[in-house]
Design a protein around this nucleic acid. Structure first.
Length: 633
DNA sequence: CCTACATTC
């Protein structure tokens, strides 16, 4: 028997093909490992869905899984990836325009494609995978795909060359009634459990615990002292908790003698690749026991073999957005039932396992089934600009699976209006059209676009690339490691200097390391810069440097461009030494974050910030000094 | 003086 025929999905092959002929949308429920992601596109290809130059596309929420699944499917077909099976993610593409019939891509990439080909006519079937995660891009895809499906259905009657668009929505959880109602003429198909999943014993606390970090500590020690060999995966909410637990466990185990020694490993996405890979290194289970203390990365993004015990603290750190303060922040909230189940499932990949939930069974039953979708707790400015680009003028009428809070929609529209991206009627302007094409936050695109007028595109391109990094630039906060790169006039100019010196060092890893600058972040900034450069060329924007002008203070034009994008983020010095927003009365008592170069010495009456952090105080960071008269425009 | 989940174009 062929190995692929042992996957549970094989039994459903005929059903899937039949149901897809009959219904417009097929909703497939199947657990991880059931083979839906790898096998369904292949079945469709075999049965002719990619004939006549058409393609089958399958979207993923993440880059890594997109590349790895495409590679695996190509491998199963004894081909290299980029022939019949290809992938397309940002910065990396393996597609042959003539040969590729099955394409894996990120949902963000498919959204980009829609801007060029609004009906996505090359695709006969679009499969949206991991729909239960409800990522921002997945939710946006839902609304747009539904619209495309309708439009193609209507056009089909007038133009025989246009095909109906078939959708497959695949989800790991059972809560799909909402999806079935949402997609017309849809059908739910449940696929048998993955054969490779073993049973996991779930243990709850008798009494709720006060300090879950403490409870984690004792639970790990108990497992080590009383349970047979097998690695442990602990879920916590963030880096600091992880480091604390590891330190405490290290102190304990270093004084203990036992037959099986313990290896303590942290896991979070900010870590360097080398450190992450340690988690995957095989150890001899009769000699050592790995204890991996992780954030949510291990719940969805990374899968580690050999885990037998899972310890679940019951909490998760998520993004939350306040439109009134125009501020995103992170909050710790109880996990959802589906997250908890996903976490416990990590214990049963290789053999039966155990999961210790550090809360009571009663608390579990009271948890929400799913978290609030990301679209309801995000800044929607970029998303709405993209919708406007696709001709969706009335955002309130857009068919969101979950309608985001009206406040978030309103504040996004207001920002777009102030940026000049939409007009009084809410229609996309010419500027807005250009802004939406850049793979950037609209405010950053605006800085870049404005730089043409001030002849400093070369400098702004670098600053914008550095600002659009989502991860930490500095490994250690202290300035003392970076004295030679700091520019006292502001953080943006420091970012520019860091990038240029990094380039002069020939992109040296050790140059970064000796200054405690994150190398991963710097290489990402370089990739972003190169990509943006291509877009500038597309819009015929020359990359002029301010150095080539006869400007006296070279920083003034650069600072003016930043104001053009971030005019909402201006603060004024008050008599007590704190800053207050000039536009938003809610933003008061703001302190300069110690990581800013302006924390070293500053008494400027007006500053512009790029970020507010709400920790012990409200801190503003990524700052430059500005002149109030620049604001009148 | 310092509280960064995870993603994506």
């Amino acid at each position: 028997m062929n190995i692929h025929q042992t996957l549970p999905i094989y039994e459903n092959k005929k059903d899937i093909l039949y149901l897809l002929e009959k219904y417009s949308t097929l909703i497939i429920i199947g657990t991880t490992g059931c083979g839906k992601t790898t096998q369904i596109p292949k079945y469709l290809w075999e049965s002719g869905w990619a004939d006549g130059g058409r393609q089958i596309v399958c979207t993923q929420p993440r880059r890594i899984s997109t590349v790895s699944v495409a590679t695996r499917v190509a491998d199963e077909m004894n081909q290299s990836v980029g022939k019949t099976v290809g992938y397309s993610v940002r910065f990396d593409e393996q597609i042959d325009d003539n040969l590729t019939r099955i394409k894996y891509t990120t949902d963000g990439m498919l959204l980009r494609e829609m801007m060029l080909d609004p009906l996505l006519l090359r695709y006969s079937v679009i499969m949206v995978d991991e729909a239960h995660e409800r990522s921002l891009n997945t939710d946006m895809l839902f609304g747009l795909l539904k619209k495309i499906q309708k439009a193609r259905f209507l056009k089909k009657s007038e133009n025989s060359r246009i095909d109906e668009l078939k959708l497959i929505i695949s989800s790991a959880t059972l809560q799909v009634e909402q999806l079935q109602k949402y997609f017309q003429n849809s059908y739910i198909l449940t696929i048998g459990k993955g054969q490779r999943i073993y049973p996991v014993d779930i243990m709850y606390l008798e009494e709720p615990c006060i300090n879950y970090l403490d409870k984690c500590y004792h639970t790990v020690i108990d497992i080590q002292n009383s349970q047979p060999p097998g690695d442990i995966l602990v879920f916590l909410t963030g880096k600091e908790e992880i480091d604390t637990l590891i330190e405490r466990l290290d102190n304990f185990f270093s004084t203990q003698k036992s037959k099986i020694s313990v290896v303590l490993l942290a896991l979070y996405s900010q870590m360097s690749m080398e450190k992450q890979l340690k988690v995957f290194q095989q150890t001899n289970p009769s000699m050592t026991r790995k204890v991996i203390v992780s954030t949510n990365v291990a719940e969805t993004s990374l899968t580690i073999d050999g885990i037998v015990y899972v310890v679940d603290c019951g909490f998760i750190k998520i993004k939350s957005y306040s439109p009134l303060e125009a501020m995103e922040s992170l909050v710790v909230v109880p996990v959802s039932q589906s997250s908890a189940n996903q976490r416990s499932g990590r214990a049963g990949r290789n053999r039966p396992g155990k999961c210790y939930r550090l809360y009571t069974e009663d608390s579990f039953s009271k948890l929400d089934h799913n978290l609030i979708p990301e679209i309801s707790r995000s800044n929607l400015t970029p998303l709405i600009l993209q919708l406007k680009n696709m001709g969706i003028d009335n955002i309130l009428n857009f068919d969101f699976l979950t309608l985001p809070p009206t406040n978030n929609l309103a504040s996004a529209l207001e920002t777009l209006y102030k940026l000049g991206a939409i007009d009084d009627n809410g229609k996309l302007t010419e500027t807005g059209g250009i802004l939406s094409e850049f793979p950037l936050d609209p405010q950053l695109s605006k800085v870049l676009l404005t730089s043409q007028r001030f002849h400093c595109t070369f400098e702004c391109l670098i600053i914008v690339s550095m600002l659009s990094l989502q991860s930490n630039l500095y490994d250690i906060q202290s300035h003392s490691h970076r004295k030679d790169v700091l520019i006292r006039q502001g953080d943006h100019l420091t970012l520019l200097n860091i990038f240029q010196q990094f380039q002069q060092s020939n992109y040296s890893k050790s140059w970064c390391k000796s200054r405690q600058i994150n190398y991963k972040s710097m290489t990402m900034a370089l990739k972003i810069k190169n990509q943006l450069q291509a877009y500038l060329k597309k819009f015929s924007i020359p990359i002029q440097s301010i150095q080539d002008t006869d400007e006296k203070d070279l920083t003034i034009p650069i600072r003016k461009c930043i104001v053009a994008g971030f005019f909402n983020n201006i603060v004024r010095l008050q008599s007590d030494g704190t800053y207050k927003s000039i536009g938003n009365p809610l933003l008061d008592n703001l302190y300069i974050h110690p990581i800013s170069v302006l924390s070293l010495q500053n008494s400027s009456p007006f500053l512009l910030y790029n970020e507010i952090l709400y920790t012990t105080k409200r801190f503003i960071k990524d700052l430059i000094v500005i002149e109030p008269e620049w604001l009148i425009k």
